[in-house]
């Protein structure tokens, strides 16, 4: 797991390894799982917040399937250029 920009600041963490629970098979389910940690996690990953995510360094929708060993990142909409 990787967290960038305001998400990283809110959860106070830039990376971690997590064990996927058996019922977490998609990116959207993973976001909900992390949200269930409560506190800053519930706020940073709130459903109302527009966030983007990547699986193995490619932008991915909430329906994207996850496999063991995947690199998953959550971040706000990008503002480069």
């Amino acid at each position: 797991m990787l967290y960038f920009a305001s998400v990283r600041e809110k959860v106070g963490r830039e990376s971690e390894e997590i064990e996927l629970p058996a019922d977490v098979a998609t990116l959207g389910a993973l976001r909900a799982h992390l949200r269930s940690r409560g506190g800053a996690w519930a706020e940073a990953l709130a459903e109302t917040r527009a966030l983007r995510a990547a699986v193995n360094r490619e932008m991915a929708p909430p329906s994207a399937p996850l496999r063991a060993g995947d690199e998953v990142a959550f971040f706000p909409p990008v503002t480069g250029g």
């Binding site: 990008v78 503002t79 480069g80 250029g81």
Partner: peptide, 14 residues
């Protein structure tokens, strides 16, 4: 390329 850099490349400004 510029339009997509702004919206698809993972950069964040503070």
């Amino acid at each position: 390329i510029m339009d997509f850099l702004k919206t698809r490349a993972p950069f964040w400004k503070k």
